[in-house]
């Protein structure tokens, strides 16, 4: 690997670390006496605000703004849940009592997830969390994985990819390879990429869980969150 690409890789990861958003705090919902529904509405409000932050974050990923508007929309519509769940799994690694740490002041254990209709999501996310914990991810790897999840999320089409799409994916891939080479971890980039299918499965289960709650239990959702769930 050339020293130029090494330098570029490090710059991309440094930039991703620098632009990683500060975690939001959950605003406790008080609109109902049903405590499970309150928890769920608190979580949905948090996710809606996180989506806004995520869209601004995506614009900061090197190469993203060079994509066409259609491609930007397509990647965000496919990959937003994956990008959000990387953060949840990372924060839940050392949680007491196997809780899911959606944010510092919103931690849900298995019983709470079951009560809110998110038992399926709990199981899938704990599995992903265990995987990341076993791999002992570094913060550099977490931010790069999050960006790669988004870059990799586009729908596969029979048409050749645009140059900008390829450059966007290759830039992140090269950054990860260079970072792992600098740590003398030859197989690590490949191992990280091999976790992306599990992340996608987990995100699909999360989307299905929220859509089920909205359609079957008529849980009200914010407009942006609903629009992004519907896009799936």
């Amino acid at each position: 690997l050339s020293s130029t690409s090494c330098l570029l890789g490090n710059k991309i990861i440094s930039h991703l670390l620098l632009t990683e958003p500060t975690p939001l705090a959950a605003n406790q919902d008080n609109s109902t006496n049903d405590s499970s529904l309150r928890t769920l509405l608190t979580l949905c409000d948090l996710m809606n605000r996180e989506l806004l932050v995520l869209i601004d974050w995506a614009k900061e990923i090197p190469g993203f703004s060079g994509l066409s508007l259609v491609d930007q929309m397509s990647l965000l519509q496919s990959g937003w849940m994956e990008a959000l769940l990387v953060g949840v799994a990372w924060r839940s690694q050392d949680a007491v009592g196997e809780e899911l740490v959606f944010t510092g002041n919103l931690r849900l254990d298995e019983a709470q997830c079951r009560a809110t209709g998110l038992a399926d999501l709990y199981e899938a996310l704990r599995h992903l969390t265990a995987k990341y914990r076993a791999m002992k991810l570094s913060p550099e790897e977490v931010v790069t994985l999050k960006a790669m999840a988004l870059a990799n999320s586009g729908k596969s089409t029979p048409f050749p990819q645009q140059d900008t799409d390829v450059q966007f994916q290759d830039g992140l891939h090269e950054a990860l390879q260079d970072y792992e080479s600098s740590r003398r971890e030859q197989h690590r980039a490949g191992r990280l990429l091999m976790t992306l299918p599990l992340l996608r499965q987990t995100a699909d289960r999360a989307v299905q869980a929220f859509l089920r709650l909205h359609r079957n239990r008529h849980v009200p959702l914010h407009k942006l969150l609903l629009e992004m769930l519907d896009a799936k």
Partner: peptide
């Protein structure tokens, strides 16, 4: 576009491309 109008609007807000 109409169906995904919030995302469309949020992305159209001007942003400077990152030059690395």
């Amino acid at each position: 576009k109409e169906k995904h109008k919030i995302l469309h609007q949020l992305l159209q807000n001007s942003t400077s491309p990152v030059d690395l």
